[in-house]
Design a protein around this nucleic acid. Structure first.
Length: 479
RNA sequence: GACUCACUAGCUCAACUGGCAGAGCAACUGACUCUUAAUCAGUAGGUUCGGGGUUCGAUUCCCCGGUGUGUCACCA
């Protein structure tokens, strides 16, 4: 670093700013390579970071990397001149420079630029990680993502793909006449999911606010307001553990469609996920962590009790008392709590015994009402709801249901959530009178859906950890 | 939060049972006008994550702490 500062000073001594103001770029690296025949012999201007230098006395080669890729530049003392060539020798790997040069092909056949002039645009005062092995230390990769992006091209690709996935999602929904909206991130009442919230404080109003755990209740207010199709892509915050598939803030898309039910939204979910895969990857047949996964619709559909029966041989539809449910859970070695009813125990068994088997895309439907306080009850069985969850590679990817639009039922469900909350369940819903009030004006029959974007990106980029698809994953603060 | 494994030069990694802390890349000096992990000769670079203990002697063994990986718990 000391040497690099001296080199910086050497530029300054010649009246050259080592941190420039502007460079007029006419081309990017990938275009030079792609359009070589048309460009050969022409002068172009390119800017980027020096990634490698190979000096041969009075001639040198460098690899210049820009947003699009790398291209080689060739420096000759007899072309740029003796004075300029001395300046060139002050450059380091990592420096950002602008080059004007003529497109040509070397004797070894590499498309390159014969530099006629160059400018230093930003001196790099710290050395880059090693060129061959790259940066492997995961902690440094996450804490200093910019270094990871400079030296590990795969990482860059992952985030380019992430951006394409979200663009594709928006275009699919926009084509279907969905309105993209933005709702508050700071909520007086944290609702729409079962999760512990982050708490913050508004000074002027002297009130605590919660970072949203889901946009659900606001989006449904908009359906009440007459927007028939809305969606929001945004961050939600849950004050819970961190793991390979959990980050305290993560990105979700939630959408609501009036006059539809959960069956319609299951088809929509298939269309969205397979449509994105087709547009971004060109196929619905993907490989995730060595496992072939077929995203082409239709996906498997199973009720939760069918799934439990398939993998445990227990028929929960035949169970009528909490004692029976508990005894089955005991036999299977599945834990439960006092607050769990039959539905809660069924769900625990599902999570413990079934989820791990759901590798190919699978809709699980008919969740117990007990664990679905915002979903509409099934017409034939009020103990279950018209709800679905999507599992792929044993992970929940999406959740949707026919929305509960009966304000009286909703108020009752909130009341029982509040009871659970008072008996110590801090993930149970709070009473939201304002939301019930909105329902009292009339929520049309509506289907809703939420998809975890980070998990979708993991799947489509074959990333083993959610941290690999978040530019700056949550880390402990380090001095 | 519990357990587990890891932390050595800017980066990637060595160092046997506790015995002088090393290599490659990067850097520096020199040679070299078509190289591409350029090559050749040389030079420099360390609080071995921090603190304590055991020992004649600790990168190595023990304890406490930090950060991270993984698994579990909570959850999506």
């Amino acid at each position: 670093m000391r040497v690099r500062r001296e080199k910086m000073a050497a530029f300054e001594a010649q009246g050259i700013e080592p941190f420039a103001r502007k460079y007029d770029v006419t081309i990017h690296a990938d275009e030079v390579l792609a359009k070589f025949e048309a460009l050969e012999g022409q002068t172009v201007r390119i800017a980027g970071r020096i990634m490698a230098v190979r000096g041969h006395g009075k001639t040198s080669f460098v690899h210049l990397m820009d947003m699009s890729g790398k291209v080689q530049a060739y420096f000759r003392q007899d072309v740029v001149g003796e004075v300029e060539y001395e300046k060139f020798k002050l450059l380091d790997i990592g420096d950002i420079i602008g080059i004007e040069g003529v497109v040509f092909k070397t004797q070894r056949g590499e498309i390159s630029l014969k530099t006629t002039s160059f400018e230093i645009l930003a001196k790099s005062l710290r050395p880059l990680p090693e060129k061959w092995h790259g940066l492997k230390d995961v902690e440094t990769r996450y804490r200093q993502r910019y270094l990871d992006l400079i030296v590990n091209p795969d990482v860059r690709n992952t985030f380019v793909t992430r951006s394409k996935i979200i663009k594709s999602l928006r275009s699919i929904l926009d084509k279907r006449d969905y309105l993209e909206v933005e709702t508050p991130m700071m909520h007086p009442i944290a609702g729409g999911a079962a999760a512990r919230p982050f708490i913050t404080h508004h000074n002027a109003l002297d009130m605590d606010l919660f970072l949203r755990i889901a946009p659900e209740l606001y989006l449904k207010r908009l359906i009440v307001g007459g927007f028939e199709r809305v969606y929001e892509v945004g961050r939600v915050f849950r004050n819970e553990g961190i793991s390979v598939r959990h980050n305290p803030e993560f990105t979700i898309v939630e959408l609501y469609q009036a006059y539809s039910d959960y069956q319609d939204l299951m088809c929509l979910t298939e269309d969205i996920v397979s449509g994105i895969a087709l547009e971004v990857l060109g196929t619905t047949q993907i490989t995730y962590q060595g496992q072939e996964i077929n995203l082409a619709p239709p996906w498997n559909r199973m009720t939760m009790t069918e799934a439990v029966k398939k993998y445990t041989d227990v028929d929960f539809d035949a169970i009528t008392t909490i004692e029976e449910a508990r005894s089955i859970a005991d036999t299977l070695g599945v834990r439960y709590e006092k607050k769990n009813g039959i539905g809660g125990i069924l769900n625990n068994i599902f999570e413990d015994k079934v989820e791990e088997h759901l590798i190919q895309p699978t809709f699980i439907i008919g969740h117990p009402t007990e664990i679905s306080p915002l979903a509409k009850r099934n017409k034939d069985n009020p103990e279950i709801t018209d709800r679905f969850e999507v599992f792929i590679f044993a992970r929940e990817l999406a959740n949707g249901f026919s929305e509960l639009n009966d304000p009286i039922d909703q108020e009752g469900r909130f009341a029982s959530q509040v009871e659970q909350r008072e008996s110590g369940d801090d993930e149970a819903h709070m009473m939201d009178h304002d939301y019930v009030n909105a329902l009292e004006y009339g929520l049309p029959p509506t289907g809703g859906l939420g998809i975890g974007i980070d998990r979708l990106v993991m799947l489509l980029t074959d990333s083993p950890s959610i941290r690999d698809v978040l530019l700056f994953p949550h880390m402990r603060h380090k001095e």
